[in-house]
């Protein structure tokens, strides 16, 4: 089976800072793959490199077996979408929810806009009552639902999730995580999920990669993580820290 997403020794260099130092990973279709690590370890950079938002210096990125060129084409943007971390920064402040959802449809020349917008809003549990609101009239959780609806409206097969719940309260996080699981099942999506919270990744993903300083520390199964069976001391330390404070 061809991998839905494959990175081979990808390097990202900002000016003279090596943000990614040759990272390789492979995600199968329908799989949920997690990325964890401390801030600055290069998790977001991986997602941005895939999305074409970060300068890839070397290495290759394959989607469904097809190597990506430097310039992404429209078909790429219909198969790969992203949800950002900060729900307050990822929605245009001057556009209503309706306008936000219409834009991708207009860009890809998809007709039947009315029905799709209504359906997208219902899918993320917002309903049409939210359709003509501006972002500042929404709570953080509602904004993140809108961002998910915007990503799903072009019917992608791969969803890149950059800490989608770390700015949300725990109860809202649970709702959004449940929503993400539901749409993944319903649409057979492939997830690449970034989080600094080991428990979230273990809950959502099948496999994960631990990162540090722009490099892979190790890849392991979520079941191994849950059983605290890490091979690398750094992973052990992360697991230890996530259990809370010990006197």
């Amino acid at each position: 089976m061809t991998n839905a997403l494959e990175l081979d020794r990808v390097e990202v260099v900002y000016d003279d800072f090596h943000a990614l130092k040759g990272v390789s990973l492979a995600v199968q279709p329908g799989e949920a793959f997690g990325l964890v690590g401390e801030s600055g370890s290069g998790k977001s950079t991986i997602l941005r490199a895939i999305a074409g938002l970060a300068p890839v210096a070397s290495g290759t990125i394959n989607i469904d077996g097809q190597s990506l060129s430097k310039r992404r084409d429209k078909a790429f943007y219909r198969s790969v979408q992203m949800v950002f971390q900060d729900p307050y920064g990822s929605l245009h402040p001057r556009q209503t929810v309706d306008r936000l959802l219409q834009e991708p449809l207009a860009i890809h020349g998809i007709d039947d806009q009315e029905r799709r917008i209504v359906r997208a809003l219902e899918e993320v549990g917002l309903g049409t009552g939210f359709r003509f609101r501006y972002p500042h009239q929404l709570s953080g959780g509602q904004r993140q639902r809108v961002a998910i609806a915007r990503a799903l409206i072009v019917e992608p097969s791969i969803l890149l999730l950059d800490e989608p719940t770390s700015a949300l309260d725990a109860s809202v996080q649970a709702e959004v995580l449940n929503l993400l699981e539901t749409v993944r099942k319903a649409r057979k999506l492939t997830f690449l999920l970034v989080s600094h919270d080991l428990a979230v990744v273990a809950h959502m993903c099948d496999r994960l990669m631990v990162m540090q300083h722009g490099e892979e520390v190790e890849q392991l199964l979520s079941t191994e993580l849950s059983a605290r069976k890490a091979r690398q001391p750094y992973t052990q330390k992360l697991i230890e820290a996530s259990t809370g404070f010990r006197r």
Binding site: S171, A174, L177, N178, E181, D197, H203, S242
Partner: peptide, 21 residues
């Protein structure tokens, strides 16, 4: 209780979907 419950936990039994508040 709801706040405690709705957080994913490492090593806890599978809870899909997570309980919400």
């Amino acid at each position: 209780r709801g706040l405690l419950d709705c957080m994913p936990r490492l090593g806890a039994a599978d809870r899909h979907p997570l309980p919400t508040l």
